[in-house]
Design a protein around this nucleic acid. Structure first.
Ligand code: MG
Length: 296
DNA sequence: GCGACAG
DNA sequence: ATCTTGTCGC
């Protein structure tokens, strides 16, 4: 699923003389949480036939335009739309009767379905611990760094790159980064993988670490630098009363698959040298080096 | 303008 | 996450 193309397919439906909003387009994609992503996607619109200038703020303000806001206003006036004091009357001009199959709703349903395959019981060995992360430029660059658990030394490094097909949308991070991680894991079989992002610490209890863990039937740990969701109490994070993660200094550790909150936290702690566990930190550094080398 | 849901 | 550079208003 390419969310860029899905978005262009929707925006293309806005007729001349009407406007829609970033939020309405996001709703047509299946989740209003993607409204900022819609703005980003339209900013990169490569298609002449996709009238991205017909998408404005939900308060009636014109919003941004890569070719300048003045150009956007001019194009809208050419469509016959009145702009009064920089505002457009949405009561009069709003279009939201989109034909769509709500792709984000389908992805949400997939998350719910795959969640059934999750295991929260400890079921792992501790021989090698890998970290994975992705950096972005024109393309996505993924890095895999594997540590030997006893010597704490790096035993393997790997980098891949591929086209970006999905923007960052809160709670759908997996759909942006999973394709890269899938490519990275080919031929590798670490005991445990630490992934930059959340595991259970997610509104649907299914962050990228869970998703990857289920897909590959492997033990995973989510390592997040900021709190996405949940209530914090005494270093533990709860979602609807369920303990889903534990704070480790400035970061949030949550189980992905085949591991408990406590075990995930202990493994992460063992690899703490700076603010982020070494496997993830090294993967982050390596991914950025790959991008810089390739694009700059 | 603030606050706002990982990366 | 990336951009991209100042020292700051709030
Ligand atoms: Mg990352």
């Amino acid at each position: 699923m390419n969310l860029y193309e899905e978005t262009y397919k929707i925006v293309k439906q806005i007729p001349r003389g009407r406007v829609s909003t970033y939020g309405e387009v996001a709703k047509a994609l299946g989740d209003i949480i993607a409204s900022r992503a819609v703005g980003k996607i339209l900013n990169e619109n490569p298609y002449e036939e996709v009238p991205c200038y017909r998408v404005i703020y939900s308060n009636g303000d014109i919003g941004g335009y890569a070719g300048g806001i003045e150009k956007k206003a001019e194009l809208l006036r050419q469509d016959g739309i009145e702009i009064v004091n920089g505002k457009i009357d949405l009561k009069k001009y709003l279009f939201n009767d989109f034909e769509t199959d709500y792709p984000l709703k389908k992805l949400r349903e997939e998350q719910q379905r795959l969640k059934e395959k999750l295991s929260m019981e400890d079921d792992f060995s501790v021989e090698t611990i890998a970290g994975m992360d992705v950096a972005y430029g024109k393309k996505a660059y993924g890095a895999y760094v594997e540590f030997d658990a006893e010597s704490m030394k790096i035993v393997k490094r790997k980098v891949v790159s591929m086209e970006i097909k999905f923007p960052y949308v809160p709670t759908y991070l997996a759909y942006r980064e999973l394709p890269v991680l899938q490519e990275l894991i080919k031929g590798e079989k670490p005991s445990i993988i630490m992934i930059d992002g959340n595991g259970l610490l997610h509104p649907r209890l299914f962050g990228i670490a869970c998703h990857f863990g289920v897909l590959h039937d492997i033990a995973t740990i989510g390592i997040a630098k900021k709190l996405l969701y949940g209530k914090e109490k005494d270093d533990y994070i709860f979602i609807e009363g369920k303990k889903v993660g534990k704070r480790l200094g400035k970061i949030y550790v949550s189980p992905g698959n085949k591991i408990s909150v406590e075990s995930a936290w202990k493994i992460a702690k063992k690899f703490m040298k700076y603010a982020i566990p070494e496997p993830v930190r090294q993967a982050h550094i390596l991914a950025n080096e790959a991008r810089t080398r390739d694009e700059k």
